[in-house]
Simulated assay, not measured.
Amino acid sequence: MRYFFHIFDGSELHPDDVGSNLPNLESAKRMAQVVADELKKGGQFSQSSLVIVADADDKILFECEAS
């Protein structure tokens, strides 16, 4: 299944127009956590970033913040 990892930086949404093929929702959750944690390391701009995971129909499946 294709999952899209959109990034919300606190004021603007940065859409993922490509997405990633992953085997299941659990894999998408792990990927979203990795992305969120890496964004947090990126400095002041990304400190408030939120990863929003959607399916191919643009249905939001869940949101993830850095741990």
Rank of each mutant, 00 (worst) to 15 (best):
R2Y: 04
R2C: 01
R2S: 02
R2Q: 12
R2H: 07
Y3R: 00
F4G: 02
F4D: 00
F4R: 00
F4M: 01
H6V: 01
H6Q: 06
I7E: 04
I7V: 10
I7S: 00
I7D: 06
I7P: 00
D9R: 03
D9I: 07
G10K: 08
S11Q: 13
S11R: 15
E12P: 00
E12W: 07
E12N: 05
H14I: 11
H14C: 07
H14K: 05
P15D: 11
P15T: 10
D17Y: 07
D17G: 05
G19E: 12
G19N: 14
G19H: 04
G19P: 14
S20H: 07
N21D: 14
N21L: 10
L22W: 12
L22V: 15
P23K: 10
P23V: 12
P23W: 09
P23R: 06
P23G: 06
P23N: 14
N24A: 07
N24C: 10
L25H: 09
E26I: 05
E26Q: 12
S27Y: 09
S27Q: 06
S27G: 11
S27P: 00
A28C: 11
K29Q: 14
K29C: 09
K29P: 01
K29D: 08
M31H: 03
M31N: 02
M31Q: 12
A32C: 10
Q33K: 14
Q33D: 02
Q33L: 15
Q33M: 11
V35C: 09
A36P: 02
A36K: 05
D37C: 02
D37S: 10
D37L: 04
E38A: 14
L39N: 06
L39E: 04
K40S: 06
G42R: 08
G42W: 08
G43H: 02
G43T: 04
Q44L: 12
Q44H: 08
F45I: 05
F45T: 08
F45Q: 15
S46K: 03
S46C: 13
Q47W: 04
S48K: 13
S48L: 10
S49C: 15
S49T: 09
S49M: 12
L50S: 05
L50E: 08
V51F: 01
V51T: 09
V51L: 08
I52Y: 03
I52Q: 08
I52H: 07
I52L: 09
V53I: 05
A54E: 04
A54D: 01
A56N: 13
A56R: 09
A56K: 14
A56T: 11
A56L: 07
A56Y: 06
D57V: 05
D57T: 14
D57K: 12
D58S: 13
D58C: 11
D58R: 13
D58G: 04
D58W: 01
D58T: 02
K59R: 15
I60E: 12
I60K: 13
L61C: 11
L61R: 10
L61Y: 09
F62P: 09
F62H: 12
C64L: 07
C64S: 06
C64F: 03
C64T: 14
C64H: 04
C64G: 03
C64K: 15
E65M: 10
E65D: 00
E65Q: 11
S67G: 05
S67C: 02
S67R: 13
S67W: 03
